[in-house]
Amino acid sequence: MKTIYEKPQVFTDAITTYCGGCGHGIVGKLIAELIDELKLQENGILVWPIGCSCLSDRYYDMDNFMALHGRAPASATGIKRADPSKFVLCYQGDGDMVSEGMAEIMHAAIRSEKFSVIFINNAIYGMTGGQMAPTTMLGQVASTAPYGRETLNSGYPVQMAELMATMPGVVYSERVTVTSPANVAKCKKALKKAFELQLEGKGLSFVEVLSPCPTGWKMAATKSLDYIDEVLTQVYPLGVKKDASKEEN
């Protein structure tokens, strides 16, 4: 019999705690595939946030650092500066990155830290029960915006991929999603690019993933995918926002 698909080797046998239809699991699998393909298991350190992905150290059979809420880019800085020979991946949700840790991600970009960042934008706080995030859409209902987010009180959604593209220290910034097989393939391509740029010693590489949270959105899994394609992408357009990888630096 011919094997057409195998579980990535870096994965342990642990079962994830993600809800059905969650985007974390899809991106998590792409990360595992790339770790195998680029042979990063023995020379990599994964830095995880606090949020629904905070048990990820159980899923990857490699060295893991579970950072404090929002501080993953600071701890990743410490790791990469201490040992630049390591592949360092910094993974964050939108509450973690854009709220609690906005200073840390901005300054990692300002300093042009030489690691890769994956940003899971699900426009809500998943882990803590569906509270409003800085990325929550205007009008979107959240447990701390029970009648929908309004600008008067809570301002505007933050476009991280565009913001990072304005930073000279960022070498690559792209926004992708995981709503279809084609989009998943594009997501993997973006992640691979980001990882390879790090391996080449370039500056911070950034990939934002629009990711479904059916539980936080109180929406069926399939509906969640439509919500991303039809609503979220209006405020968060997909595509490469910056590619300075060909420029001399």
Binding site: S75, T77, G78, A103, H107
Partner: peptide
Amino acid sequence: VAAFNMVAGAVST
């Protein structure tokens, strides 16, 4: 805040 978390990352190596 960042400095202490950088130290945490660095000493972990």
